[in-house]
Design a protein around this nucleic acid. Sequence first.
RNA 1: GUCCGGUUCGUCUAGGGGUUAGGACACCGCCCUUUCACGGCGGCAACACGGGUUCAAAUCCCGUACCGGAUACCA
Length: 565
Amino acid sequence: MTVRVRFAPSPTGYLHIGSARTALFNYLYARHTGGKFLLRIEDTDLARSTEESTRSILDGLAWLELGHDEEIVFQSDNADKHRTTAKKLLAEGKAYRDFTPKAEPTDANVKDTIKDRARAAQGEKNMRDNPYRDLSSEESDARATAGELFAIRLKVAETGKTSFEDAVYGQQERDYAETEDLVLLRSDGHPLYNLAVVCDDIEMAITHVVRGQDHLTNTHKQVLIYEALGVKPPEFAHLPLILAPGGKKLSKRIHGEIVSMTTYRDAGFLAAAFRNFLALMGWSPNSNQYAADLTTGNEEIKVNPCVGEIMNLSELIDNFSLERIHRSPAIFNFDSNNPKRWTDDKAQWMNAEYIRTMPLADVLPFVKAELKSAKLWREEYEPDGRALVESISSTADEGPDHRPSGVAMDISENGSYDWFVGCVDLIRQRFFTLKDFSAQGRAYFSEDFDFDPAAVEKNLSKFPDLKTWLPELADRFENEFTDEASGSSLHVSKSSSPLPFTQENIETVVKAFTEEKGTKLGIIMNGARTLLTGVAVGPSMLSVFQTLGKERSILRLRSQIAWNQ
RNA sequence: GUCCGGUUCGUCUAGGGGUUAGGACACCGCCCUUUCACGGCGGCAACACGGGUUCAAAUCCCGUACCGGAUACCA
């Protein structure tokens, strides 16, 4: 029997973190077992479902690259089948018509109302005391024919209990006395959730229902429906909830954007990183087995710590199992008052880890997209030859630890594909999100970049001499180094022969210059850094000079813009 | 209220009768360094509480506390 699982969100908002994790686990389980991952939109709550939500959920899944199999099922399309099923149960005497007038819905706080009602009824509440439960079929038919409105309720037996084995929470039992005669069909003919889910899961031949723990008790009701229908229920696996800091419920209403997948996409997260993070919320790989695989049979090593958490999709798929899902809820940590901690620390770390250790070829398309959206992309960065592309992609086999990049390229030629690749590899080492490529890294791709006032203060204003020194250094560059384009200098160099603009040579020149001025190397370097890149942080200045190239370095060293701010 | 779950460093977690209770993130310190990072090394930090069972309990059992879920003609 091939495994068939489904992700069944209700389109009442964007894809939030809990749903995303549910989708991921379903996906991983399907791929691990060679089964099918199906998608069903549970849009039967007409009042709250929107097409926009559906689109947003689909976008979220697409971003996470959780592709589904087969056609998307829209639950509302199956309403007729649900009604037919309810009527069948009615005809068989397994359900009955309830002519009790529908209670007016209390709009405000439904949850509280339910709770209060349940508490008030406590003690004498008999789940089987519905007056219409044992109405004769003749009278029931007659009243229905007369046009009286009725809901259809499942007739739950007086004694006994439902039970099922949950792959995560173990054996579950519930006395029938705890379960009311649940409504299958509303008096307006609208099928309700529990009926719809069961019908659709049967229809879609679902073998494993993997969903949030909030459905654990619903499962008893659904098992009852399966039994009434004479269908063997699927396997169930309920996932521990993802909670907000403090162990409170994570809600769209209270926590807002922080729970939405689109937030992470828009903040420059890599789907692979976020997926990896999500997978570790409520699940962990078998550390022993994983370590054994890595060490090729060396039983001595118990756990391989670092490699154990960074897992690409296929590693997640290989290691995934329902058995290793936890029972206790996980807290998604964030602090809306702290910009640095706007979302979970570990998620941020993982994203940075992916950005700097991913195979370079894999990160390039994302950088391109980011630069494009920031209008910093230039056609020159496109690969202009097959050979180049191949030489890059060959590094893709190195795996996540690939570091530093094996791509050794001449990055002196500014504006080419080679330059772009080298530049990305250089600057990604201290980036956290894709956004950094267009923000912190803007000066590498554009002449139009801002100066961070704090950096200017720290590295320039404090040393007024730099105002004349740095243009002097530019002159020195111009005279000492060959023109990168032609390879030979047209200038008559003061020194015996012009040098190529390499890190080694730059270092020699800058050091000599520093000594002449009787200052410290750090003052010159950091001043240059701020003038060249607008910020106080970045890679080694020698590589910055080289990456920016001789011409741009000179231009910026002479620029007085920062000084005039 | 009732029913059902859960509880290992701040967070994600490993471990499930004998461990110096392991790792990751975060934090702190040191090294590296022209900056900031990265990286390396080290540090801080946990078995909710109370009873049992046992030679031995974080681990098994029972309570208590706390947290969560469910209890709809919502999904």
